[in-house]
């Protein structure tokens, strides 16, 4: 029957089971992924009230649209734009995400290239070695860096032992932006390497051989052939890293200092610290707006791959 055919010609009759395949995940995602966004938008436009849950216009069904519009209140957004803290957090998040993505490309690209050039027999092992850290907890991997970067941690010990540092000196990386960059690059490296590798691995090597035969120096061949052909991987990897990094919370919270501003951390503080749900929602909506374009690029890229 039709549950396995995709065109009208081989359509073997109706079937309700066929549509359940689409309907069940569809309804689930509408209810638990799309509906929450509409609610967050609604609540970001509500007044704060000291109650539980802390926001006033409670969701009361899909009432009259007129009511809804008259209730709209941009106070939270005005507040966000008035307070330089939020704007700074916003810009700082984007800055950290851009720099981290560039660092990831700089480190990930040579790794992916080396993997793609490795003998075919060891490639699956190399891929597995890149994936394995990704399977271990994010939190654990960030935690591992605390012990290394702490002023009385292992990096200080190492530098003291090899004599680069006096016995009383301590390295001051922990709770700075540098530690945040290290944590981000470390945590997201597999996400950057894998799409790059899959783009580079598919590449036709005869092109490089042809360039070589025609006397093109290797570096020039790289920029004229390898890099342009790997561009889909570069875009996919950059988006997969850039988008979640912008909203990152765990890394700046555990490795960053009090002056490390990131919007994900701000949202968390507003919600759990200040219990200001409408303001947290407004922060989320603004964060989402910044990410709409990258998310769309990512989706187009994924559809082309599929």
């Amino acid at each position: 029957m039709a549950s396995v055919s995709n065109d009208a010609a081989t359509h073997r009759g109706p079937g309700r089971a066929r549509w359940l395949v689409v309907l069940v995940p569809y309804v689930w995602l509408l209810l638990f992924f799309v509906a929450p966004f509409l609610i967050i938008l609604k609540i970001s436009l509500s007044d704060t009230a000291i109650s539980m849950p802390p926001y006033t216009p409670v969701f009361e069904g899909f009432g009259a649209i007129g009511d809804f519009i008259s209730e709209l209140d941009f106070e939270n957004y005005v507040f966000l734009t008035d307070d330089p803290l939020y704007i700074q957090a916003y810009i700082s998040s984007l800055r950290i995400a851009v720099i981290s993505t560039l660092l990831l490309l700089l480190i990930g690209y040579p790794m992916a290239l080396a993997m793609a050039r490795a003998p075919t027999s060891i490639r699956p092992t190399l891929v597995m070695l890149v994936i394995l850290p990704f399977w271990t907890s994010f939190l654990i991997r960030v935690y591992a860096w605390i012990g290394i970067l702490k002023p009385d941690g292992l990096l200080t010990l190492l530098l003291q032992t090899i004599g680069l540092m006096g016995p009383d000196d301590q390295i001051q990386i922990f709770r700075t932006d540098t530690a945040v960059f290290i944590g981000i690059v470390y945590s997201y490296l597999p996400f950057m390497v894998l799409p790059l590798y899959s783009a580079l691995e598919k590449m036709d090597n005869t092109l490089l051989e042809a360039a070589n035969d025609l006397g093109c120096p290797p570096l020039k061949a790289f920029w004229r052939i390898t890099f342009p052909l790997s561009l889909p991987g570069v875009i996919a990897g950059s988006m997969i890293c850039f988008i979640p990094i912008t909203g990152e919370f765990v890394i700046p919270d555990l490795l960053g200092g009090a002056d490390t501003l990131m919007i994900g951390k701000t949202l968390w503080t507003e919600f759990f610290g200040n219990r200001d749900w409408p303001l947290a929602s407004a922060v989320a909506v603004i964060l989402l707006l910044a990410l709409v374009v990258p998310i769309m690029i990512f989706q187009n890229q994924q559809k082309k791959v599929a």
Binding site: P36, I40, I243, P244, F249, G264, F271, A280, A284, L287
Partner: peptide, 10 residues
């Protein structure tokens, strides 16, 4: 790719 803070809060 959605930042977890957004998914969680919403």
């Amino acid at each position: 790719v959605m930042p977890e803070v957004i998914t969680g809060l919403s």
